[in-house]
Design a binder for these strands. Sequence first.
RNA 1: GCGCUCAUCGUCUAGCCUGGUCUAGGACACCGCCCUUUCACGGCGGCGACAGGGGUUCGAAUCCCCUUGGGCGUACCA
Length: 466
Amino acid sequence: MSDLRVRFAPSPTGYLHIGGARTALFNYLLARKEKGTFILRIEDTDVARSTQESVDAILQAMQWLGFSHDEGPFYQSERFDLYRSKVQQLLENGQAYRCYCTQEELNAKREAALKSGGKPKYDGTCRNRTAAPSADAPFVVRFKSPLDGETTFVDRIKGPITFRNEELDDIIIQRTDGTPTYNFVVVVDDAEMGLTLIVRGDDHVNNTPRQIPIYRALGYPVPEFAHVPMILGADKSRLSKRHGATSVMAYRDMGYLPEAMVNYLVRLGWSFGDQEIFSMDELVEKFSLDNVGKAAGVFNPEKLLWLNAHYIKTGDPERLGELLKEYLANIGVDVANGPALPSVVKTLQERSHTMVEMAEGAAFYFRNEVVFDDDAVAKFLTIDKRPLLESVIRSLEECADWTHDGISLAFKQVMEDTGLKLGKIGPSVRVALVGGTTSPGIFEVLEVLGRKVSLQRLENVLTILK
RNA sequence: GCGCUCAUCGUCUAGCCUGGUCUAGGACACCGCCCUUUCACGGCGGCGACAGGGGUUCGAAUCCCCUUGGGCGUACCA
C-alpha cells in the first residue's frame, strides 16, 4: 500500500457519462498502479437534484466497467454535521461571514457590474457588516477569500497555474437553508478523507484557486491536483446528448463490451507510443499522468466501434456466449433449444461489431420458423433451383462426417453432380437455411445448425419454391 | 466582457522538455487493389497535418512573442 489516495466523486443527478467514466478510470488506474487507495464519494449536497436512481445507475456503471473502489461509497448528504462544524469554525475564526444580500440584489449587482465592464463578483457588502439587519433575517455564509496576492498550484497535467487573488470571489459555503455548497464540502471531504491527489475534469481548474485558501483556513494540507482535459463532440463543443449517446450504460445496451469502452476512453487523451490495444492489466502497469495530453479531445464513435469489434473478435466464446444470451433475449429470441452458444459465437465473432449485431446475426439459429427475406427468396429460391436443392439434400443425407470438412466434401459432390460452382450453389442454400443473403459461411452454418435442423429447413424450402 | 487554459492529418495521437536522425510516424474513418460461396475478417497501397505572423538560431513541429481560433469558468449546480 502506497500513500496515494485518490477518488471519484460524481454527483448523482444523472447516469454516468463518458467524461465521468474517464476521470473515474484515470483515478482507478493510478490507485491500482501505485497500490494506493481508490475512494468513491457521492456528491449529493444538492438535495433537490440528487436521486437514488442516479446513485444506483452510477454504481452499476462503475461495476460494469470494472472500477472497484477500496473505500466508500461515502454520501455527503450524511456528513452535514461535519460540514456545519467546519463552517462554524470559520465563522468563529473570522474567516467566514454571514451575508444577508438577497438573490435579487446579487443578480442586479452582477448585471450592473457586467454592464459597466467590471467583474461580476460579490462586492463585499456584508464582509465588514457588524450586525445583522434584523434578528431573523435569512443569510448565507461566505468564505473570506484573500483580497490580494496570488494563488498558484502546480497541476500534474498542465503545469503551474496562477490566479491573482483579486479575481477570486467570496464564495458561498452555506446556503440560506443551511446546506453546504460544493466548493466547501469538496475541500472538507478531500482533506478529511486524506486524499493526496485530486484527479478531476478540466472544468474544475477555476475552482482550484478558490478551494486552496479554504484548505489553508481550515488548517488542512493542500493535495496535488491533476486536471484532465474535457471530452468534446464532433463540433468541438462540450460533449452532450445532442452528440449521441453519452451514457456509459447506453453503450452496453448497444452491444459494447466494457473492455472496449475502457480501452477507448484511456486512449482519448493518453498514449503509450503507438500502442492502441491495452488490457486492463497492461493499463495498470503502463498508465501514467506523464503522458496525458493537455488538449481537449473529440469523442470518436467510429474508433470505439472498431475497438469493440476487436474485442468481440478476440473474446472468449464462452463468455461472449453468456452475454449473447441476454442480447438475444432482448430481441425475443430464446436459446433454450438451439445450438450451443459458444459454437454460435465462433461463427459470428469475425463479422460482428457489437453484441447487438451478433444477436441479430445469430437469431436464425434459434428460431423454429425461418424468417424469409422476400427479395432473397425471389432471387435464389426460384423453382428452377429444385434439382440443385434436391442434390444438396441427397448429398448431405449421405454425409457421414457432419463437420465443416465433412460438409465441404458433400458440397464437392454436389458440384460434381451438377457441374455448378459453389458460387451458384451457396446462395440458395444460405437463403434456405437462414432466410437472407448474409450469414456466416454456409459450411459453418450447417455444422452449427446440425444435420436434423439443416435438412428440415432445406426440405421445407422445397415446398415454397416458385 | 473578464479570468484560466489549449493548439501536429477529418478524428485520436507519436515527436516538442534535452532544436538537426521529420521529404513529420502510428491508429480510426475514407478511397483503391487482393483474398472470397454472401456479409465480414484479413493483406497491400493511397489520400491526409506542424493554425497564422514575427523573432532567436547555421538550423524550429520543437525555444520566445503576438494574432487567430477552441474549451472551461464567471450560480444559494457540481
